[in-house]
Write a protein that binds this DNA or RNA. Structure first.
Lengths: 224, 224
DNA sequence: GAGCTGTCGCTACGGGTCGTAGCGTAACGG
DNA sequence: CCGTTACGCTACGACCCGTAGCGACAGCTC
């Protein structure tokens, strides 16, 4: 988490209430001001704590904002809706709902931007957001397998590479849709994305099974 | 562009050399400092101009950085490599190459983050980056059609929606791969992405032609 | 209960950046 | 030659940062 409670150390323990107050205040400030105009002094005032308390727990603005916007990702759960397709749609829609919140929009992207120059922050993004989302994908695949649906499966190494590809496509598409294209990632859009994705993977798997001739994968009609 | 040359106004014209010097200095500063630590005073010093000159041409840090990192997107061209698949791979790889530059990594994402709270900046991102990339997609499709390959095509309205979906998937995947997953968007990865995408679109088109029964699109094997 | 330890709120400070104003100078057009 | 605009330079108030120092507080251990 954000502040390491130093295990069995003695002394006055850190106020857990202050933690939640600060993170809540940070989200509120993000909504009103955005990342660039957010100041630590302002957050401290909103949370009703001293500015120094902020610095005792977080190294800087980046870490604080990241923790504040990463919190909702903790609550991500995947309801079992029966089919693989429905599961994929959920994996698309749940983070899309989070990205609808204005504090997540500016906060997450700013954190990613800063992470390009800060390896520690990048690692933090990975553990607190990316891994939690990937867990959903793994969970959905396991369920589908138990259910009898056969998700695309290759060798163990190829499978990992494919999982990464899927994740980049899904997560990237959601982010790009809602932040860059500025259009809603709603249920219908999620359905279209899921369809293209699953059909493409099925096709790639079918092509992979007959190892020899790689089909050219054009539009589906005559080639030239 | 960034600074409107006021047409037929009188008086001393703005130095074009200063413009390029400033943008170059901005990119250099982005590489060394990243977005958050970049200061306008530092950029001015590197460019050899006065700080006031910066404020006369750009409203603030956001606009300046955006113009600086958007410039390379002007040069995007799409070589005709014969097949639709190759064209798609190029659409993937060209921006990936730009995102390899460290100044683009932090600058672009920061601009997008700020754009979530600034409509004018968002419009600027759209015209100077998104539209230029979309142009490549349209160009590639037109070539494929002229060549005899039939890219997926529905009604005109459905086609537009599909084009947006493709764009969000491709652009989003590239960004997510290189910035969040922090792994190279190289030729092999682009090939995998292209394959899944085109096969998925072909499958979706085939399913769309027989309007009635929507196939369930699971892994390809038996359903439950 | 006494003492230790670490947190908390508060205040104050130096250092840095921002954005603007004011001034004299430089370049171009009528 | 004169009006107009851009430029470089300096200076200024405002803001924010990050830290240090202080007294007070809350747990834990003995």
């Amino acid at each position: 988490m954000q502040s390491r409670t130093p295990a069995g150390r003695s002394g006055r323990p850190r106020s857990a209430a202050a933690d939640t107050a600060i993170l809540t205040a940070t989200r509120a400030a993000l909504v009103e001001l955005g990342w660039s105009k957010l100041t630590l002094g302002d957050v401290a005032a909103r949370a009703g704590v001293a500015k120094t308390t902020l610095h005792r727990r977080w190294a800087g603005k980046n870490e604080l904002v990241l923790d504040a916007v990463a919190e909702p990702f903790d609550a991500l759960r995947l309801p079992d809706r029966g089919t693989l397709a429905a599961g994929v749609e959920d994996v698309v829609l749940q983070p899309a709902a989070i990205l609808d919140r204005p504090e997540a929009r500016s906060g997450l992207m700013a954190a990613v931007a800063e992470a390009t120059r800060d390896a520690a922050l990048r690692e933090r993004v990975r553990t607190s957001i990316v891994d939690r989302r990937k867990r959903l994908v793994v969970e959905g695949r396991a369920r589908a397998r138990a259910r009898g649906e056969r998700p695309v499966e290759f060798g163990p190494e190829e499978a990992a590479r494919t999982a990464d590809l899927i994740f980049d496509m899904v997560a990237g598409a959601v982010v790009h849709r809602s932040l860059v294209s500025a259009e809603p990632a709603d249920a219908e859009w999620a359905r279209s994305l899921t369809r293209v994705l699953l059909l493409g993977l099925a096709g790639a798997a079918a092509a992979g099974e007959r190892e020899d001739r790689v089909p050219h994968a054009n539009g589906g009609a005559g080639e030239a």
